[in-house]
Amino acid sequence: ADDEVAKLLVDAYRKNDEDKLEEVKKRYNISDEQVKRLIRKVL
């Protein structure tokens, strides 16, 4: 599931889509710190 979330985050990140990032964060209840970590893992 982590990889799936990471893909969604990276996708939103690449598109610079703040709304999507927020949506994913809320849906999976993850912190900014986790977001950064997941994005770093993929990029």
Rank of each mutant, 00 (worst) to 15 (best):
A1K: 11
A1C: 13
A1E: 12
A1L: 15
D2C: 15
D2E: 12
D2L: 14
D2Y: 13
D2R: 09
D2H: 10
D2V: 10
D2P: 10
D3N: 10
D3Y: 11
D3S: 12
E4P: 09
E4Q: 09
E4N: 10
V5M: 09
V5F: 07
V5C: 10
V5N: 01
V5W: 11
A6Y: 12
A6Q: 08
K7D: 06
K7S: 08
K7G: 07
L8A: 10
L8G: 02
L8S: 05
L8D: 04
L8P: 01
L8W: 04
L9W: 02
V10D: 04
D11H: 03
D11I: 03
D11V: 02
D11W: 02
D11P: 01
A12G: 02
A12K: 00
Y13K: 03
Y13T: 04
Y13L: 13
Y13N: 02
R14L: 15
R14M: 15
R14K: 12
R14Y: 14
R14C: 14
K15L: 11
K15F: 08
K15S: 14
K15A: 14
K15V: 09
K15G: 09
N16W: 06
N16C: 13
D17I: 04
D17P: 01
D17L: 06
D17E: 06
D17A: 04
D17R: 04
E18K: 15
E18G: 12
E18S: 14
E18W: 15
D19R: 13
D19S: 12
D19Q: 14
K20P: 01
K20Y: 10
K20L: 15
L21S: 01
L21H: 01
L21I: 14
L21A: 03
E22F: 06
E22W: 07
E22K: 10
E23K: 07
V24N: 00
V24I: 15
V24C: 02
V24G: 00
K25T: 03
K25G: 01
K26I: 09
K26W: 03
K26D: 05
R27K: 14
R27N: 06
R27L: 12
Y28K: 01
Y28A: 02
Y28M: 04
Y28P: 00
Y28Q: 01
Y28D: 01
N29S: 07
N29A: 07
N29W: 02
N29F: 04
N29H: 08
N29C: 08
I30C: 04
I30G: 00
S31N: 09
S31I: 02
S31F: 01
D32V: 04
D32C: 08
D32F: 04
D32H: 05
E33V: 07
E33S: 08
Q34D: 14
Q34C: 07
Q34L: 09
Q34N: 08
Q34G: 06
Q34Y: 11
V35S: 08
V35M: 13
V35N: 01
V35Y: 09
V35H: 02
K36H: 11
K36P: 05
K36E: 13
R37E: 15
L38G: 01
L38H: 04
L38P: 00
L38A: 05
L38K: 02
L38S: 02
L38Q: 02
I39D: 00
I39G: 01
I39R: 01
I39W: 02
I39Q: 02
R40C: 15
R40K: 13
R40E: 15
R40I: 12
K41F: 07
V42F: 15
V42I: 13
V42L: 14
V42D: 05
V42K: 07
V42H: 11
V42Q: 10
L43S: 06
L43N: 06
L43F: 08
